[in-house]
Amino acid sequence: MRRDGMVDVRNDRQFFQSEVMRLMDRLYGTALRLTGNSADAEDIVAEAVARAWEALPALRDRQAFGGWIQRILTNVYVSEWRRRRARPMTELPNESVPDGELEFSLFRRLHQPFLLWWGTPEHAFLNKLLRRDIERAFDALPEPYRAVMVLVEINGWSYSETAECLGLPIGTVRSRLARARGLLQRALWSWAKEAGVSAAAGPAPGRRLS
């Protein structure tokens, strides 16, 4: 039972500060993937923290803090993106998907049948894939595709949660996700070829892979 208002505020503040600090890598990482640049990511995290503090009394289940503040942060990004672009996220200049993009599969490029699984090129590829390669591939996605990808792959949201947050029909989430995956895998593939990770190319000189 709460008896002393001052103690409540102090407890709330301590809880809030320690949770924000604990979740900092996740909040900043998500914001960075959404915006693609540090300055915007920092502003979004700061805005999300300010909004979360204001809304804290409405959070009943303190165990849910992580998912709750992640949602606030994502909402800050979406409203900011809308404001800046002055157009809804539902509009894309060219939504139609060229077959090659949608169908692109890293696995098909890498996989060689009849090899034992522990020595396959696709597993070697995953082991040698650098964190920086993945970050670059995310950041290179056009913004609406990136947003869907971040909400599903990083936030771990369902298609319907993603659709609701972005104000999109669920079918559009599915098609953007498929296209985003194709584009991202194609980007990883081209860098893998440059770096000599793929089976087709020999090791490229001058780049350490692991």
Binding site: R13, D25, Y28, E42, V45, V49, E135, E153
Partner: peptide, 22 residues
């Protein structure tokens, strides 16, 4: 691997900014 891209170490100035704000 993609999910891991959602974690990044923030610059010190962001930590300081949030500490001041909080």
């Amino acid at each position: 691997r993609l999910a891991q891209a959602g974690r990044a170490s923030p610059p010190e100035r962001l930590r300081e900014r949030l500490k001041l704000m909080m």
